[in-house]
Amino acid sequence: MNILSFRNLILGSFLSFSSIAIAQEDSAKINISQDEMIAELAETKTKLQKSHNIGDRFVIQLFSGSNGEASNQIKDYEALYEYPARIKYEAPNYKVWIGNFRNRLEADRALLIIKETYPSAFIPKPKRK
């Protein structure tokens, strides 16, 4: 009788521990709900970053002059460097701007590299938006 009660005790312990483990497995599922506006906000920020319309960013100016010459400058530049380049019109000139640097230190580091090929390149003061 003693062996039967010991088996029952082991069997009961096993069943109770397995049911606790199953109950914990069910409660470990996490449901994360996210507001729809978060995805829209992230998409808007990405668009602003690609269009270079975010805050006080630093650029390097390579050239200022006519549109045709600015296009030629960009073609020459893109063959040599990886920083993004764009043409910006500020009456009466077209300007070739390089990069979209978060701070002056990043812009200065890139300027040192670019000045080897374009000695007249400089960092204009960013405008506040």
Rank of each mutant, 00 (worst) to 15 (best):
G55A: 10
N53A: 10
Y89N: 08
P92F: 09
T44F: 12
Y89I: 04
V96C: 04
I54C: 01
Y77D: 01
Q34A: 09
E69W: 00
A70R: 01
Q61R: 07
I32D: 05
I32Y: 14
P119C: 02
R128H: 14
L9N: 13
Q61K: 06
N8P: 04
Y83T: 07
N8I: 12
Q49R: 15
P119A: 03
I30P: 01
E36A: 11
L48A: 07
S5I: 12
Q49A: 09
T46K: 15
N93R: 03
A121K: 02
Y83I: 04
L11V: 10
K129W: 11
F63A: 03
N8C: 10
S13K: 06
S120A: 11
V59S: 00
F17A: 10
Y94A: 03
L111R: 01
D76V: 04
I123A: 03
S120H: 14
R86D: 04
F101V: 08
N67S: 07
Q73K: 12
R102K: 15
N103R: 12
G99D: 00
N2E: 11
A70Q: 04
F122E: 05
R7D: 03
F58H: 15
G68I: 06
A107I: 09
A85F: 05
M37Y: 11
I60E: 00
E116A: 12
K95D: 00
M1N: 11
K50N: 13
K29D: 06
K45T: 13
V96I: 06
N8F: 10
S51L: 13
T44L: 14
I60V: 11
D35M: 04
H52M: 05
E36P: 05
T44N: 14
A70E: 02
F122Y: 15
S16R: 09
A85E: 03
E40Y: 07
A70P: 01
A42L: 14
R104P: 02
